[in-house]
């Protein structure tokens, strides 16, 4: 039976790092607030996966419990984030993050 632990931990690590990096790159190159929000979700999910993997390898449930916490928090964050995006859209009629740069220097 293929269990979670039968795949070497490095695989998870590398995979999650790549996933995380994709998220980071997404954040960096995209200007659409929604896409950035999704990229951040991607980052967080890669971490979730990593935590779950570590939890399994360490035989320690704390990691997985933390994943639940993260999911709750991420949900809250997304809720706020979407609200902010809506707010921005209302005032600027755009969700391009670089449109708003009145505050600078």
């Amino acid at each position: 039976m293929i269990t979670l632990t039968s795949i070497p931990i490095h695989y998870y690590l590398v995979f999650c790092s790549v996933l995380f990096s994709i998220g980071v790159v997404g954040v960096l190159i995209k200007r659409n607030a929604l896409v950035i929000l999704m990229s951040i979700e991607l980052m967080i999910n890669s971490i979730n996966l990593l935590l779950a993997a570590f939890s399994a390898y360490n035989n320690d449930p704390a990691g997985q419990i933390f994943v639940f916490f993260i999911m709750v928090v991420a949900a809250a964050e997304v809720a706020i984030g979407l609200a902010i995006v809506v707010l921005i859209y209302r005032t600027t009629h755009s969700i391009d993050i670089n449109v708003l740069n009145k505050l600078k220097w």
């Binding site: 954040v27 670089n98 740069n101």
Partner: peptide, 17 residues
Amino acid sequence: VRFIQTGNVGFYMFIMI
């Protein structure tokens, strides 16, 4: 130096990375 503070979020992210 203060002109580094461009007001552009994308730029900020880039520098942070």
